[in-house]
Nucleic acid binder design. Structure first.
Lengths: 121, 121
DNA sequence: GTATCATATGAATATAAGTTCATATGAATG
DNA sequence: CATTCATATGAACTTATATTCATATGATAC
């Protein structure tokens, strides 16, 4: 790293533009939520309709406990919310931002695949 | 789960709308990339300018090795690319989609904070 | 109150993932 | 061609995280 003094100016510049550590952690934590297939499948399910825990578990072929744990994570992050109806608890998307974010990821993959196909021609 | 038969219709409906397993994994893998503060900080750095490995390492106060490992992950996922100039290797964003996706996450956090502040009034 | 059903939760376990350390590669330079 | 500098890489270690299992909670119905 003997050249380190050479990029001092650039480093100062970039350092200034980096978001605060707290913001970076929050951002990473947000994306981490989408970085798991179980949570992703739960969210996609809730795109269609609110659902109770056991319905989600059955749909995804997983135990009620596993689903409950993940629902808790998603709820604590305010991506989903729930309402009670007797013994049953229905979960639903808290807002539409989730759709937008996942949609962007989706678009990226589609575009990437398009590019790869073109390369292979 | 004795009630399982009751949501059969809903389950069939939602099952139809769920993306294929492969797409779900790719999506989760994509978001996983953004779910780590080191990678997030690398990407934010590259938003400003292409950079060599040692500059990034110095900027983030991390070892060259740690940065190299993460750059490899990001490159394998086609989020970034690199070019060689003598001994130095410069990394840069592969496309602007990354900016868009992270931007969406950013917006979500901003909005969430706005909502929380309003609640506390 | 007791039984039952839906869900939540804590602890244990298993697996994934990030960093470090030592070392390898690969280009430039004398 | 030996040395130096920038980067890459494999293995070991460490920490985070997802699932399971057993059990708790909380609501309903009898």
């Amino acid at each position: 790293m003997s050249e380190s003094h050479n990029h001092a100016a650039l480093l100062d510049l970039v350092r200034h533009e980096l978001p605060k550590e707290e913001m970076l952690c929050d951002l990473a934590d947000l994306f981490k939520l989408f970085g798991d297939t179980t949570r992703m499948r739960i969210l996609f399910s809730l795109f269609e309709s609110e659902m109770c825990v056991c319905a989600i578990a059955e749909l995804l072929g997983m135990t009620q406990s596993a689903i409950s744990h993940q629902l808790k994570v998603l709820k604590q992050s305010n991506l989903i919310d729930c309402r009670r109806e007797g013994k049953t608890i229905y979960y639903f998307l808290a807002d539409n931002h989730v759709r937008t974010i996942i949609g962007q990821g989706f678009d990226h993959l589609i575009e990437e695949r398009k590019n790869k196909n073109e390369e292979n021609i």
